[in-house]
Nucleic acid binder design. Structure first.
Lengths: 304, 304
DNA sequence: CTACACAATGTAGCTACGCTACATGGTGCT
DNA sequence: AGCACCATGTAGCGTAGCTACATTGTGTAG
């Protein structure tokens, strides 16, 4: 029973095609196909079956792939253990984030890491892409979800919560609500809103506000970029829902944030990882740094 | 990080010498030495060090070997999983036992196993040898320990309790105590005893009887073989402590067993295994059969 | 104290496993 | 029908890991 082959099966389960596995493991598709064939012969039962021009796993194949994960995890634990004996954490760790989390956490994290540990970061648009799928490409995936809806459960991924960030109501200076300590849904119905692109998670909270207040909100614009939204708010063109810790970065003091009461208004920021990658010492080190950085941000920044 | 090499390290931890590992894995000592060298180079720190003409593990080596066990376990789980998908349990399982347990359990177990599963049994004298050490050679080791003193804990072995067998007082027919329902330590002090060889576990119970009764027992003979002891008892030459379920096999009705009250008088019969071996489907099947056979014996045999 | 036995480890060479490069056979899309 | 794409065969190569044999170092017996 060969571990390499099991690993290949697991990659196939994650990536869905022989070609993708080959690319990810720096091999030719032919090599992958041959190894899977050998594995199947050893197993004595079909692990894959053709579907169209692609290949999908059978039930047996999926089950084997799942236990292949356990093997990978224990192997990763072993290498992590000996990393602890030898040097400190070293090597490369790759990470994707959605823009605001990266802006908030990554600079602090990278400066806190030793010189032997290089962190390769990238950003992706949060809603355009399937974030869990990135765990195949990146060691760490920073994702956000609305409270409660932990959509990444059950996929066999390791989920580490980093922070819950409140979503406040952003107002221009001098707005009638700007001297309140907090606002309620009913305060907001007359306002002009700068909304987010359809499908963005904030959307749900806006709906909740409408439901709570019993009236529809008037949505004048719809943007994806937060800085753009903020500039509109500052310009007095409307108000918007903005994450507390990542707002007003460009123009401090010109945007007023008010906590929203009456509806649950926050997002969970989490790190997603393949279970085996999560065991690597270097990865664990980055995760710890992310956690402490998140805690620092949460303590230092208070609502205005 | 190669699993084969980790496995070799683990074998070295278990067996203590390169030559033994080589013999166990069907390789030349040179091959083992080379692989360990490579592993050490990869690890970047010494895993072994010479001691005399032999080789012992360093702390780091032991730690790595321990986590190598986890890898082996998850690998074994994977193969077991797919065995469940395919045929039923098949293959070979090796087992050592001490004589009485084998006599009591093995015939029933072997007849209960399917034709695809062959169980290779052997027996060893219980006290002459270190039973846990046999887990390197055999898949399953049947061992017994006195109650409480679970001497096999903490060695990283999987322990499955099979039964607790009471140790009764064996009497010849017509003995003054033979019509009692049970006996106490104080009843036994006048008697002539047929003892067990020094160091046998029953010894402890005899000491407990002496302590409880406040007098020494007179020990006329000391034997290792149970059948021999019984024949002496039947001949009226003394009384003895005998395990309830394995006594009187040869000459039924001529030996009377009386439960002993006032001292804890029983032995634990357990199965010992390497954790990875314990995961194999064939091994688990044998263990289950052992357990049900033990339960059957315990139910069918009652004290006379 | 020399000689032998035994354990680990080097060296040379062979085998076989797993890769690449290229060709082939299906399947979906235009 | 033609093209693009994916999986998979085949031939051949490189190398990892084995054996056989030699070497070194350490206990043990005569």
């Amino acid at each position: 029973m060969d571990v390499q082959r099991l690993e290949l099966l697991r990659e196939l389960a994650d990536r869905g095609s022989v070609t993708a596995v080959a690319a990810a493991t720096h091999r030719t598709p032919s090599a992958v196909s041959q190894q899977l064939k050998v594995l199947e012969r050893e197993a004595g039962l079909p692990l894959t079956q053709r579907q169209g021009r692609g290949l999908v796993l059978t039930d047996a194949g999926r089950a084997l792939a799942r236990s292949a994960t356990d093997v990978a995890v224990s192997l990763a634990k072993a290498t992590a253990l000996w990393d602890e004996f030898r040097n400190q954490a070293s090597g490369e760790v790759s990470l994707v984030t959605f823009p605001t989390a990266g802006q908030m956490l990554l600079p602090g994290v990278i400066t806190s890491l030793g010189p032997d540990l290089v962190l390769n970061c990238a950003d992706e648009d949060p809603e355009l892409s399937d974030f869990p799928a990135f765990t195949a490409e990146y060691d760490i995936v920073l994702a956000h979800s609305m409270s409660g809806a932990l959509s990444w459960a059950g996929r066999g991924l390791t989920v580490v919560p980093l922070m819950t960030e409140p979503l406040d109501v952003g107002l221009p200076v001098g707005h009638p609500l700007a001297d309140r300590a907090w606002v309620r849904p009913s305060d907001l119905i007359g306002e002009t809103w700068i909304g987010v692109t359809d499908g963005y998670p904030f959307e749900r909270i806006l709906h909740a506000i409408e439901q709570e207040a019993g009236a529809r909100l008037s949505m004048s614009q719809r943007f994806a970029d937060l800085a753009l939204i903020e500039s509109f708010v500052i310009a007095g063109l409307g108000i918007a829902l903005v994450p507390r810790y990542t707002s007003g970065g460009g123009q401090p003091g010109r945007l007023v944030l008010k906590p929203l009461r009456g509806v649950e208004s926050e997002r969970q920021i989490v790190a997603l990882m393949r279970p085996d990658r999560a065991e690597r010492l270097a990865v664990r080190t980055v995760i710890q740094s992310l956690q402490s950085e998140a805690a620092r941000v949460q303590h230092s920044q208070a609502p205005q």
